[in-house]
């Protein structure tokens, strides 16, 4: 009755607080648009693309193909573009390429990484079927991480579902 029950001291806690690792927010902007998918960039004002240049590839050949929602097969329009790419790459054998696969934002992150990978793989396979040595083609998937169009509209989403052929050694 009315007892104050005092229970003996509990154990000693060694609780963690990760005090270390306060990585400062060195907000260095990422460098050039390595992942943006714009390949050789736009044509300079009033300048004509030099044949065999990155501009020539982007402007005259077309560096990208587009996909339907959740689809990874190259469309007939896409095959026309890839035929031109294959022809151009055969003409300029000094280039190697990276095929970047992308998905739109209307999907979940991990599945979209797989989706982008399958798109880039299908583009690679098509280029190989058109005579390009597979050792010249690397693939990478960015899933939905690198949209080029950011509006909330079908027109934007369809621009983002793409595979972009980027000249890997355009500077050389």
């Amino acid at each position: 009755m009315n007892a104050i029950r005092s229970v003996s001291q509990g154990g000693r806690y060694a609780l963690l607080i990760a005090a270390a690792l306060m990585l400062a927010a060195c907000a260095s902007k990422p460098g050039a648009d390595a992942a943006g998918g714009l390949g050789g960039g736009a044509l300079g004002a009033g300048g004509a693309a030099t044949p065999g240049s990155a501009q020539d590839f982007v402007v005259n050949v077309g560096d990208r193909v587009f996909f339907e929602t959740d689809q990874t097969e190259v469309s007939s329009a896409g095959r026309v573009t890839l035929d031109r790419q294959a022809q151009w790459l055969q003409q300029y054998p000094r280039y190697t390429v990276i095929v970047e696969g992308h998905a739109d934002e209307r999907g979940t992150r991990e599945y979209n990484i797989g989706l982008g990978a399958r798109r880039s793989s299908n583009v690679k396979n098509y280029l190989v079927s058109r005579g390009i040595n597979p050792s010249r083609i690397r693939t990478i998937s960015y899933g939905k991480e690198r949209p080029v169009a950011v509006c909330n509209d079908i027109s934007c989403w369809s621009q983002n579902r793409r595979a972009v052929t980027v000249l890997d050694n355009a500077g050389s």
Partner: peptide, 27 residues
């Protein structure tokens, strides 16, 4: 009582002793 445990790798910044306070009012 909370089970006492030592984290082997851990930074013992928060070293706390948990004791139990118990009052029974009115029994």
């Amino acid at each position: 009582r909370r089970p006492a445990r030592r984290g082997a790798l851990r930074t013992a910044v928060l070293c706390l002793v948990a004791a139990l306070l118990s009052v029974v009012a009115g029994g």
